[in-house]
């Protein structure tokens, strides 16, 4: 089957029930999305399908329905996405393992709501776990990213 990841088409030969996360990491070598729990309870594997955040551990090959974007395709080192810039500005990451999922979740959320309240941010980000406890910085960075997106 063919899938499009970060604008590039790939021909893959996998079982129908292989999770997208496995396809990305093991078949395509795209390792930004991380394996955390495998049961959609941590958010580390979050990517976008047609711009919407999905847990790639839950998307089987047979259910891929659109273009996929991973952290590698969200922005580029010389042209960061607003969420990535805000993450750098607030030095959000500690160990960093969950952060690609956090950023992908935030980017999808802000695409729907670019002026969120703290409560709305907490609501949108609570299903992405961070064992380092960077949540206060995540909330600040989401607010900064929202401001930057609105003024862009």
């Amino acid at each position: 089957m063919q899938i499009t990841v970060n604008g590039n088409q790939h021909e893959i030969d996998v079982e129908d029930d292989m999770p997208l996360l496995w396809i990305l990491r093991d078949e395509l070598g795209i390792t930004g999305p991380k394996y955390g729990c495998g049961i959609a309870q941590c958010g580390a594997c979050t990517v976008h399908v047609e711009g919407i955040a999905v847990r790639s551990c839950q998307v089987r090959a047979a259910d891929i329905d659109g273009e996929i974007t991973t952290i590698e395709g969200l922005g580029q080192p010389d042209a960061l996405h607003a969420v990535q810039s805000a993450w750098v500005e607030h030095q959000v990451a500690q160990c960093g393992y969950c952060q690609s999922g956090q950023i992908m979740q935030a980017a999808s959320f802000l695409d729907q709501n670019d002026d969120p309240s703290d409560e709305e941010i907490d609501s949108a980000m609570s299903s992405n776990l961070c064992r380092c406890g960077t949540y206060p910085r995540i909330r600040k960075a989401v607010k900064t990213a929202a401001e930057n997106l609105r003024s862009a």
């Binding site: 049961i39 309870q41 999905v54 847990r55 259910d63």
Partner: peptide, 24 residues
Amino acid sequence: ESVPCATCHVTLLQPSENANTMPH
């Protein structure tokens, strides 16, 4: 407005007998 149900409860394109076998 926050996390779409479909972010985790992914929509299947085809029915599958084993889509929901794993607890949790």
